[in-house]
Amino acid sequence: MASHEFRTPLSVISSSAGLIKDYSHKLDETKKLKHLERIQSSVTYMTQLLEDVLLINKAEAEKLEFNPCPLDLVEFCRDLVEEMQLGIHTEHTIALHIDDSTQACWPQMNMDEKLLRQILSNLLSNAIKYSPAGSSVDFHLAYQHPRVVFQVKDKGIGIPPEDQAHLFESFHRAKNVGTIAGTGLGLAIVKKCVELHGGEIAVNSVVGRGTTFRVAIPLS
């Protein structure tokens, strides 16, 4: 499956580069730019795919490092949302909701910052990717003794019931994603990172109405 995933963008790069090389004198600037953008997009996709493959291979070989340390989750989530919002080139917004009723009594939290970033950035990126332009993604953070709960909710295309049982398998993608780009590795990586924290992940989704992912991580 991985070889096929690499072959497609490589074909795009080869085709566009060949057209620019052989017919540059016949192509106007708009068409040249279109082919250059296709090359750039394919390179970006391949880079992400390679990083995901290396990460999932490490996880499956049980060689993924787990280095928990004290972490201010509220500040971490606020910074992550700000970073992602700046990087979004669409009309989406990410709405962060923090449970203020329990925030004052939150104990010291030790988590692996790098792996937690993988978990949340993947879930938020997916929520944005599969939602219509102009919609909002809700990101909830709450302390429910003895664990912290993260919830990402979108109003996107939803996941067919028959695909939900296979969501966390490497390279699996739901049948209704159409032409939306993706490696099929993001959720497999998320699950591995959640499990290293001793946590659990659950999904609730309705086709055409949206999807909610819930991650619960114990504080110990």
Rank of each mutant, 00 (worst) to 15 (best):
D99T: 04
K58A: 05
G198A: 04
E91H: 08
P146I: 07
L49F: 04
Y23E: 13
N122T: 07
R7G: 01
L19G: 03
V74D: 12
W106T: 08
Q103G: 03
I180A: 04
F139C: 02
A2L: 09
F139L: 00
D112F: 08
E60Q: 14
I128E: 00
I201T: 02
H166V: 08
T212C: 14
H25L: 10
Y23L: 13
P68H: 10
D100Q: 15
K32S: 03
Q144T: 09
Q144D: 14
G156A: 11
G199E: 00
A202E: 14
A188W: 10
I88R: 00
A181L: 14
V207P: 02
N126H: 08
H172T: 03
H97Q: 09
K175T: 15
E82S: 15
I180P: 00
R7H: 13
A127I: 06
E5F: 09
C193H: 05
K34L: 11
R7M: 14
T212A: 12
K31H: 11
Q151F: 02
S170H: 12
G184S: 05
L124I: 14
F150N: 01
H140L: 08
E60A: 09
L96F: 07
N67Y: 08
G208H: 08
K129T: 09
L219R: 03
A174E: 09
L10D: 11
A188R: 13
L80I: 09
K153G: 00
Q85M: 08
L27P: 01
I217F: 04
R209T: 12
Y143S: 01
D22K: 15
L10V: 09
A188I: 09
P160W: 07
K31S: 04
V203I: 14
S15Q: 14
L141E: 03
V207W: 06
L64R: 07
I157K: 07
S14Q: 15
H35A: 12
H145R: 07
A174V: 05
V207I: 13
D138S: 14
D28A: 03
E51F: 11
M84S: 06
S125K: 05
Y45R: 12
H140V: 03
F139D: 00
G178D: 00
F213A: 01
L185K: 01
L33H: 07
G178P: 04
E113F: 05
N57H: 14
A95K: 15
R78E: 15
Y130R: 00
S131F: 01
Q40N: 11
M84Y: 00
E65Q: 14
Q151M: 15
H140D: 10
V215S: 03
Y23N: 13
K26C: 13
C77M: 04
K26V: 15
C105W: 06
A59W: 04
H89C: 12
V149E: 11
G199T: 03
I13E: 02
N204Y: 07
P68L: 06
A142I: 04
A188P: 11
D100R: 15
L96P: 02
C69K: 13
R7V: 07
K32G: 07
K191W: 10
S101G: 01
L55R: 08
I119E: 01
L27Y: 06
Q103T: 10
T179R: 13
K21W: 15
Q40M: 10
P218I: 07
L33D: 10
T93P: 01
